[in-house]
Amino acid sequence: MNVLRAIYNFIFELGDTALLFLKALYWSFRPPYRWRELFKQMEKFGVSSVSVVFITSLFTGMVLALETYTGLKKFNAESVIGSIVAVSMFRELGPVLTALVVTGRAGSAMAAELGTMRVTEQIDAMYTMAVDPIHYLVVPRLITGVTMLPVLTVISDLLGVIGGYFVSIVLLKINSHTYIRQMLNHTDLHDLYSGLVKAAVFGLLISLICCYKGLSTKGGAEGVGRSTTQAVVISSVVVLVADYFLTAFMF
């Protein structure tokens, strides 16, 4: 019985989330366009995550260079470290790492904020003032997710490459000229674009899940905690699952 119940709940929530997305889509093309609200969200989402993205990406690039070096040294192929670091950052690690970091930083904040607004009846109040909460709250957050996650991913890609370069050139004494030439030879724009498409999809999924969990919060402060945790866990899992399917379909 419990299994059936869980399946029922899963399908119910999936449908509810899809419905929220469709409603938000409908509202996003209708005036008034709240630019102020949108930029406020973008600032919150982007600026709050940038420092964490900075550090995680830098060190990921560095460790990537270090790890591949030990493996490649056996074949005297150290010079391709640059291309390995760049391709893995652009295609995989940049978008996925950024998505996970942003889920923890901005997604949780989103779910907690909307959840608190729900349990303190602020969302009901908005509705009674004839302002649609999906229009006012969800639409700017979804647009923010879709646009800001690729921006953060570009930063992440860049820092990963810088981290890899630093370790290779300064610590491992690889020739800078060959490193960069190898990197440019084996990386093309398609690697970058595919990563950015992924990032946009992840951004949408994270915002959607966190908004849904926030809006459907029930039961006071405890409920806010519960839905925030769920939002982060579900978003992280969904990002990784979606990553596989996006990769499978895009290449």
Partner: peptide, 13 residues
């Protein structure tokens, strides 16, 4: 219709 909620429901941001 205007509504006054039990705890005010003011936007706290």
């Amino acid at each position: 219709i205007g509504m006054v909620f039990q705890y005010g429901a003011l936007f706290d941001s």
